[in-house]
Amino acid sequence: MRILVTGATGFLGGAAARTLAKAGHDVIGTGRNAALGAALECGGVTFKPADLRGGPGELLNGVDAVLHCAARSTLWGQWADFYADNVDVSARLAHACAQRGVRLVQVSTPSVYNATGLTRQVPETTPIGPHFDSLYARSKYLAELEVQGVMPSAAILRPRGIYGPGDTALMPRLARALHGGRLPRLTQNEVHTELTHVDNVVHAAILALQRPAAGVFNITDGVSIPIWATLDRLADALKVPRPTRYVPAKVAENFAALLEAVYRLRPDAPEPPITASGLRLLTRPMTLDLSRARERLGYAPRVHPRDGLSAVLEKLK
């Protein structure tokens, strides 16, 4: 199968492109980082630098399927950029795939559930919007609507908290916060959530490319983990103090919201050291219902968080 992987110079896109090429598929990877593109070429991926804001153009020539991983994936930024990179690009790509009869698998996010108030075994049928806890979540949900509007046959994956080899966001962000000593303990009780090893996301994406299943699918490791116990393990691996100073979550969120407001006074301001939506990820439990992915995609997590997290922490040591 000839497969186009967008965002192939990113964490998930790169892992997916290399895995698909290793499995014998003819893989085209797109991205903006030529240096990382050269590394993909060594892994059997044909790299084509591209800015998708102008549409996919000739990238779809001869392609059987598209795995759309490219996105502005951050908790900080301007709405115009989120809309352009997440909503508009997805809409253009979906229209092009629909016109050519190309299979589309879109990578979204369960962040769209964050403002719903649900925390346990959240299903894909959960009513979403009109309020979201981040611009990122709002843009990804609007992107889903655009894709479903023109390609009802598309598969949309919502993997929660992707981690693993090559992670440039989740664990590095937490590590920086621990190194800087600016992360207080925000709750006196343990908080359980779910993460998704990158290999599990790639496995789900391959299943979605191979099967004609349509709709939205939650993806996780299938096992909840204790957030604060994991942060303690991370601190131990980094040989830095564990978070002990207690600050009520609401107080910290209010301070972060105020800090964000100050930073937004300057359009070119960098991301604040803390954001309210980022703090909420550490204080609000969430597990996802995987029934639909198991039944329609045949999804079964291949990497257990016990092994996946242990490998990550061991590497940090």
Rank of each mutant, 00 (worst) to 15 (best):
G7Q: 06
G7K: 08
A8S: 11
A8F: 01
T9R: 02
T9E: 00
T9P: 08
G10M: 03
G10Y: 02
G10F: 01
G10T: 03
F11E: 03
F11G: 00
F11H: 12
F11W: 05
L12M: 12
G13I: 01
G13C: 01
A15T: 12
A15C: 06
A16S: 14
A16P: 14
A17Q: 03
R18Y: 02
R18V: 10
T19I: 06
T19D: 13
L20V: 11
L20F: 09
L20K: 05
L20E: 11
A21P: 04
A21I: 06
A21R: 10
A21N: 07
A21H: 06
K22R: 15
K22E: 15
A23M: 14
A23K: 14
A23F: 05
A23D: 14
A23I: 08
A23G: 09
G24Q: 07
G24R: 11
G24C: 11
H25W: 08
H25T: 12
H25S: 12
H25I: 13
H25E: 11
H25M: 13
D26S: 11
D26V: 11
D26K: 14
V27I: 12
V27N: 03
V27Y: 00
V27C: 07
V27P: 05
I28T: 13
I28E: 00
I28K: 02
I28A: 09
G29K: 01
G29N: 04
T30K: 06
T30F: 04
T30R: 00
T30V: 02
T30D: 02
T30Y: 02
G31W: 00
G31S: 08
G31K: 04
G31D: 03
R32Q: 11
R32M: 04
N33I: 04
N33P: 12
N33G: 11
N33S: 14
N33V: 03
A34E: 15
A34C: 11
A34H: 10
A34N: 10
A34S: 14
A34M: 13
A35H: 11
A35T: 15
A35G: 08
L36K: 15
L36Y: 08
L36P: 03
L36R: 15
A38R: 15
A38T: 14
A38I: 05
A39K: 14
A39S: 12
A39Y: 00
L40I: 07
L40T: 07
L40S: 12
L40Y: 04
E41V: 09
E41P: 03
C42E: 12
C42G: 12
G43A: 12
G44D: 05
G44I: 01
G44A: 05
G44Q: 06
G44T: 06
V45Y: 02
V45E: 09
V45H: 07
T46I: 13
T46R: 15
T46E: 11
F47Q: 09
F47M: 13
F47P: 10
F47R: 13
K48R: 15
K48Q: 14
K48V: 15
P49Q: 11
A50H: 12
A50R: 05
A50P: 00
A50C: 08
D51T: 07
D51S: 08
D51F: 08
L52T: 06
L52A: 04
L52G: 05
R53L: 03
R53E: 11
G55H: 07
G55K: 01
G55V: 01
G55F: 04
P56L: 02
P56A: 07
P56R: 06
P56H: 05
G57P: 00
G57R: 06
G57F: 04
G57H: 05
G57K: 05
